[in-house]
């Protein structure tokens, strides 16, 4: 019952904010802040589904491709490096430097090396997303409870099975933490790369609208990005909850004990 009330309060607040925006913008004759109904109408006209195929699909495809590549390389690298102190020492400084470069700064280099096509964008998104996943995977793998590994070893579990059934699940909470960071970086880099060098995509659309002073269109694009970001985050959190239900429960029961 309390949860229902809480949800009701949250929803009411969100609706109230929306209402405030509506009323405030209704009488607005400011060129930059068109009335909310106009934005919503444009949103419907533009995205359902006139430009969904031409702009949303390419954006999401690049995002998915880049993010997936980063996940695979990040987890693979994390398992390789997390298991060996020497390897970590050798690769550490390079990783520290590469991850410190703000990803958008690599876009000009990407254009020089790979042109302005999708390959460049996917590459840059992957480049930006790898580091948080890799570093978290390394930490996760290196921090696996030794008793767990020794238990598996004492029962003669093979190396491959140990990786798959013991080390990977144990490191998964950390890996997901990395993936959550990477996802928001991925969206940013996707938008920036489309703004800098593209002829389609949501980022391109927003910038193009602004340049042609189609302000309601621009706002509808911003709204869409907000919704997309929210939905993608929610999706990842849901997957994480499903895969890590044991982790949340372990933590809360450990908390309850102290």
């Amino acid at each position: 019952m309390r949860r229902v009330t809480a949800a009701a309060i949250e929803l009411a607040m969100a609706l109230a904010l929306l209402a405030v925006w509506w009323i405030w913008s209704a009488g607005s004759d400011s060129f930059y802040f068109p009335p909310l109904p106009d934005i919503l109408a444009t949103f419907g006209d533009t995205w359902v589904f006139a430009r969904a195929g031409s702009d949303v699909v390419p954006s999401l495809a690049r995002l998915t491709a880049g993010f997936s590549i980063a996940v695979v390389i990040g987890i693979g690298g994390g398992i390789l490096l997390g298991g060996s102190r020497t390897a970590r020492g050798a690769v550490g400084p390079i990783v520290e430097f590469l991850r410190a470069i703000p990803p958008p700064a690599l876009i000009p280099a990407g254009i020089v090396a790979l042109g302005i096509g999708d390959v460049m964008k996917v590459f840059i998104i992957a480049m930006a997303c790898i580091w948080p996943i890799l570093l978290n995977a390394i930490d996760g793998v290196a921090g696996v409870e030794t008793t767990l590994v020794e238990t598996a070893r004492s029962y003669g579990i093979r190396r491959r099975d140990r990786l798959r059934f013991v080390i990977l699940p144990a490191a998964l909470p950390q890996i997901f933490a990395g993936m959550r960071i990477s996802l928001s970086v991925a969206i940013i880099v996707m938008v920036v790369s489309e703004m800098v060098a593209s002829s389609n995509g949501i980022g391109f659309f927003i910038l193009q609208s602004q340049r042609s002073f189609a302000i309601a269109e621009m706002w509808s694009g911003i709204l869409l990005l907000g919704l997309l970001g929210y939905a993608l985050n929610r999706g990842l959190t849901r997957i994480e909850r499903r895969m890590l239900h044991w982790h949340r429960a372990t933590r809360s029961s450990a908390l309850a004990r102290t």
Binding site: I187, V192, M195, G203, I206, R211, M218, N233
Partner: peptide, 10 residues
């Protein structure tokens, strides 16, 4: 989650 870069044009 609104990527701040979405606000660039604004």
């Amino acid at each position: 989650p609104i990527p701040s870069v979405a606000l660039v044009p604004l």
